[in-house]
Design a protein around this nucleic acid. Structure first.
Lengths: 204, 204, 204, 204
DNA sequence: TATGAATGAGTGTTCATTCAT
DNA sequence: AATGAATGAACACTCATTCAT
């Protein structure tokens, strides 16, 4: 995710990078609808029209931010997860990775958590492609765990991948919005892992 | 939640009701930013200016929808939950109630799930008051369960109330957006309840 | 002019008076275009619609203020001026009377000096009737003075009545707008009288 | 004043000129409040939004007209007046110049005489800067005349500059509004000059 | 590639006026 | 006479997008 990594793609599309970085910064500061294309152009030190050489329109700019972010998350998640011994460990790692990245890139996380949802287009039509890649990883962990006997066969991966994402995402959202942090992302990751793996019940 | 209940308030503020209902319908169909005040006025069979006799502005209209909705949810949740024997049952009932109401009022749920978040103002500044009432109920269930020995003392209600809300909310969102329903809200409620209560792990 | 006098007309049209007084107060405070009919109604402690029982529209309200004011000025001027011995004295009295009244009724003067002119209708079409009555008095003084040999026969009353009015009016305007008064209306009246009667030139 | 002069500034800000000229024409025809920004844009053969590239808002457009006008008047007055031998002649020239310019630019004069005053903002807050430059010239003539012994030492330049302006201005206003001219600006200038210099009184 | 001046469609909001009660 | 809820026309201003240079 870390855009620093991406930044190294440099070279030919130096401008594209500058625009994306500027957009993240501007959108997180002012909000998507309140930001103008001119604001982003200025922050990127680029002419208004230049933005349209790299992005179809303002919405596309927002979505591109999401896409790059997702690509990197998925890539690093798939790489990381091979290190997990079993489904339980993999799930823990997945949760921790998501929350760690949020913590590392607050501005970016804020744009994705809040501003991205302001694009109806995104919410209704787009969400799918990259996002499904994210969900697919979760689903694989779940169904893998069921097959291997670690997870209960009555668990429905199709439903639960979404529920688990929702829980992680909400943690991230609260953390991004909180001014005084009442808990760390590590604590959140720990609580979530335990909740999903062991459940709330005490004696079984 | 069911706005029908509120509708009976009739009489003096017949117009206010008509406007709110129209707004729910229009916003869910076209999206908040894409809808014009004039659209809502037409649907409510009211003059444009009339809307401003009952609401401060377009944003206020959106927020009012949320507030009425929350008031009713909280009220009916608190009433309902007294019937639950223990924390486990109460949690199950809470989840079921939330999802049932979503199923009953799709249009309204859609506005709250999607459109409401398009109001930055709402997301950043407002969210709190009514929403915290919702979360408070969840927290009470959790901490009650811990005290009564039903839930693990290592569970942190402050963190988990949010996680559980996120999971429920995501279920609702997916269901609202899905065209061909792949699961019912009952199934979702069941999966969630089991996830939270028993966890994923098989043998303990 | 002094509206206190008019106020005693009371009786049948108590409301009309209250509305006019409120309008003077509101317009002078907020300006004509910035004031709403509702503002005036509230200040008059009357319903919005009531204003339309006494005045054709917002413009009419403004013009009515002017008319009442003019009626009273003309009336008292004509009465007063009979006391003047010759044209010179009459001119002095006229100037003094005008400026004295401005000083006495600042709010009212401000409305007439500034706000009234914001009604294009007034400036272009209306101005005439009552205003011509005002000018007629001046003209009579001037032509009387010429006939009686006090004023130069080369003076053109048609032109000069207007010029003299302009000078007086500008004094009044400046005085109304000045925060720290740099001169009194008496001084202004004195300077104007001397200017018009003796001219600037020193030795003749 | 003569906007023709300014028009030659052409080149880079061709649009700005076209907009100002259009505004003068439209405002004088329809009045400031009755004219829409779209009207001006159409007359200038420019897009609505273009106006906002050159002027902050509708009010700013009006004020800019005044400013340009004043700049040119002051400039040409200061140049012209050096030719005057004494204060008496200078005063005559000043009056004549003002009225001549009004006659030459009726539309423009009308906007400044009538429409400008419809901007409360202008009347209350702005009026000062440029207008004071105008008054300063008059004051210099008056105090110069007193010093040189041409004008009576009892004349107060601070008061009279304003009175004289008022008289000239009123002449201009009447002339602009008159449909059938009853006198020429030359006659008016002559009458005013004599009034101010010699006074009305016949024998002294 | 890059620019940035120009465009013009689009909309929330105000408020003078009306009219049923 | 009085009310004040309802009306709906009217408009300044913004800003995503284009395109001639």
């Amino acid at each position: 995710m870390t855009f620093t990594v991406v930044a190294e793609k440099k070279g030919p599309s130096d401008k594209r990078r500058r625009i994306i970085d500027a957009a993240v910064s501007v959108f997180s500061r002012q909000g998507f609808y309140t930001s103008t294309v001119a604001d982003v152009a200025q922050e990127a030190d680029v002419a208004d029209g230049t933005i349209y050489l790299y992005f179809k329109n303002k919405d596309d700019l927002l979505i591109s931010i999401f896409e790059e972010c997702m690509d990197i998350f998925i890539e690093s998640a798939e790489e990381e997860l091979t290190k997990g011994k079993d489904a339980v460990e993999k799930l823990r790692m997945f949760i921790a990775l998501h929350l760690k990245l949020v913590q590392k890139n607050r501005e970016l996380a804020q744009v994705i958590q809040i501003e991205l949802r302001q694009s109806s287009k995104f919410m209704k039509e787009y969400a799918n492609e990259k996002f499904f890649g994210y969900l697919a990883i979760l689903e694989k962990i779940l169904s893998g765990g069921i097959k291997s006997g670690h997870f209960s066969p009555s668990a429905d991966p199709v439903i639960l991948k979404r529920a688990i994402f929702g829980a992680i995402d909400e943690m991230a959202l609260e953390w991004v919005l909180m001014k005084r942090k009442r808990y760390t992302m590590e604590e959140a990751a720990d609580q979530l892992s335990r909740l999903f793996v062991e459940g709330l019940e005490v004696a079984k």
